[in-house]
Design a protein around this nucleic acid. Structure first.
Lengths: 127, 127
DNA sequence: CCCAGACATCGACAGATGTCAATATCTCGG
DNA sequence: CCGAGATATTGACATCTGTCGATGTCTGGG
């Protein structure tokens, strides 16, 4: 058990759900909202930005200073982002390294985008 | 005066701020978070979806039933989305019609996307 | 002029959320 | 085995947020 089961099966963002296409069900909205709520917090946005800036891998101690938050609070935000499927956690020795999950942010972006609605972009693995 | 000044100058999402590019300042994160918080709510996601589905224009009375919410609550959510710059409000007679602000959701999508970081997509009007 | 209907605002309330201090857990070196 | 250091968890607290009922405001018809 490397604390893999954090809070379920990850909300799987909502691959292929253009938002601006057909009326969204309450259930779909709930799932997408979970991921968006994870992103829609100033300090978590900065976390994502900082992780990306450090070549995609950062530990907690790298983030407390630039964020100006306590260590528990940073850990809390990181857990939120991992649960949302946006960050991956890798324990390396004493340190825990967090990295962006490839494509996770892009999935969210694709759902919000209205460009994909018209028949133009061929999204992969979306059948 | 068609009730244009609702709650300020609109957070102007964050045209050209790739999120995954350089460490985001607290101020930038605050602004982007305001728009994302507006989107990151299940019923507001459904509002956007419903408005888009009705050819991009819907009044309050069109939304209360499918959402299962009271009229004041729907008005509240609509105001939040208008303040965030995602919806536009047009008073036509007794009815108030809400429509998607063209490009608003796409701006958010572009900020979240990591695709634009590598030199590939030529984003317009971003100099 | 007055009424009916659509929408906005207000006041109140329960639940969610961000934050920290204190503490627990885990890993490495000696 | 023990201590040091990094991270996770817990408990508490203030604040924010979504919701509704009641009420105010505006427009059009008679």
């Amino acid at each position: 058990m490397t604390t893999e089961t954090l809070a379920g099966p990850i909300p799987e963002v909502a691959c292929c759900a253009p938002l601006v296409r057909s009326p969204m069900s309450a259930q779909e909205a709930e799932g997408l909202s979970k991921v968006l709520k994870a992103i829609a917090e100033p300090n978590r946005l900065r976390v994502l930005s900082l992780v990306a800036a450090r070549d995609g891998a950062a530990c907690v101690c790298d983030l407390t200073e630039p964020l100006g938050l306590s260590q528990p609070t940073v850990s809390h935000h990181l857990k939120t982002l991992v649960d949302a499927g946006l960050l991956a956690r890798e324990k390396r020795g004493v340190w825990a390294y967090f990295s962006l999950v490839p494509g996770a942010l892009d999935d969210v972006a694709r759902v919000l985008s209205t460009a994909g609605v018209s028949p133009a972009a061929g999204s992969p693995t979306c059948g």
